[in-house]
Structure formats: structure tokens, C-alpha cells
Design a binder for these strands. Structure first.
Length: 193
DNA sequence: TATTGGATCGCC
DNA sequence: GCGATCCAATAG
């Protein structure tokens, strides 16, 4: 069943870990795509120099300062989109980046949007999974407790979770060393380092 | 108003 | 290893 607001209001590191093994679902007029969340990263508070929120409230990051359970979607490198779920309380900027999925329903739709055939390459990375699910800028700020994009808790919790440092944040001083990346151990769909 | 660089990806 | 490609964030 669909995760409710109180799930996202928990501490960000808990949300990041508990999302692993759950299903991200996107309902589209052409059909449904879903996938098991394999990899996440936490971005927590104003002090975290790796977070978009580290320089305070701006137009781009405004959703991070809002209530939990909403999507923060942004464009990166002018080409790709990244999907985050906002966590914790209003006015405290925190979010979890979804980095990889194991494709479930709607593989043919994902193949069409990705223009790739191989299952392993459909959602193995934050930009790729957004392309596979048709997630773009208009998804910024949508309610994950709604019916378009949400997380379903069907399926169990993964046995082994690997905890390590985040990808692509070398500019963030000592914050780059925080062990805030989580992924399901040994899964081939996890994005590469 | 101008400049800079990024929570990436895929091909060289 | 490097280019793509563009807009938000800063500085001026």
C-alpha cells in the first residue's frame, strides 16, 4: 500500500534506508511503470554543503523547505533530471535522492522512453530512472501522497544494505565523507561509482 | 546583465 | 577521459 505522509516525516537517514526494497510507481495515461528502489542518498539540513539547500532558500530548492512527502525534481547538467523525496518537517530542508531502480511493471514503456532495450540499463542512475519514468520539471512539487507518483511498500525489506559516501559531491568539503548513500548489496542495478 | 559550473550519462 | 547542453546561482 501507498506510503503516507508520516513515513516521509521521519529522520532523513531512516527514510533513505527504509525506501530500499519499496516500489516507486508512476501512473501515466499510457500505463503504469514501477520499480524497486535499489539506491538512495540523503541530503540533510542547511549545513550539509553537498545539499542544494546549503546556501539557503532559492527558487530551485524551495520544495526542500516545504512539508515532507513532496517531490523535488531538478535539471542537472542541462540534460538530466533527478528525483528526490522531501523529508522531515516544514522549514527544515532535507530530501532523499532516488538513484536506481529494478524495473517492475511497464518495461515496454520504459524501453520506449529510454530508447534502450536492456533491463539493466533502464533505471540504473538518477537521470536514467527519471527518463524511464517520464519524470521531468513539471513533477517538481507534486504530492507523493497523490495518485500520479508514489511509493508502495509492497515487498519486503532487503537483507543487506551497504552504507557508503555519496556520489559526485567532491566539492562539499568534509561533507563529502558522510556515509549517507545506501544501496542493496550485490545488486547489479546499482549505479556505478 | 554576464559568467560559471553542476546530486549525470554515454560514447571516445 | 571528455563533451553535451542549459538554467539557477552568483557576482558585478
Amino acid at each position: 500500500m501507498k506510503l503516507a505522509r508520516d513515513f516521509y516525516e521521519q529522520p532523513t537517514l531512516q527514510v533513505a534506508q527504509q525506501l530500499l526494497g519499496k516500489s516507486l510507481v508512476r501512473v501515466h495515461p499510457q500505463g503504469v511503470t514501477s520499480g524497486i528502489i535499489l539506491e538512495t542518498e540523503a541530503y540533510i539540513g542547511l549545513e550539509d554543503k553537498a545539499s542544494h539547500a546549503s546556501r539557503g532558500l532559492t527558487r530551485r530548492n524551495a520544495v526542500m523547505f516545504g512539508p515532507a512527502g513532496f517531490a523535488y525534481v531538478y535539471v542537472i547538467y542541462g540534460l538530466h533530471h533527478c528525483l528526490n523525496v522531501v523529508t522531515e518537517r516544514e522549514a527544515y530542508p532535507a530530501a532523499v535522492l532516488i538513484r536506481a531502480l529494478q524495473p517492475g511493471e511497464g518495461v515496454e514503456l520504459m524501453r520506449a522512453w529510454r530508447r534502450k532495450q536492456e533491463i539493466r540499463l533502464l533505471a540504473n542512475g538518477p537521470g536514467n530512472l527519471c527518463q524511464a519514468f517520464g519524470i521531468e520539471r513539471s513533477f517538481n512539487g507534486i504530492d507523493l501522497c497523490g495518485d500520479t507518483l508514489f511509493v508502495d511498500d509492497r515487498g519486503g525489506s532487503p537483507a543487506d544494505i551497504v552504507v557508503t559516501t555519496r556520489v559526485g559531491v567532491d566539492y562539499a568539503g568534509h561533507w563529502k565523507d558522510m556515509p549517507w548513500r545506501f544501496y542493496i548489496a550485490g545488486h547489479p542495478g546499482v549505479s556505478k561509482r
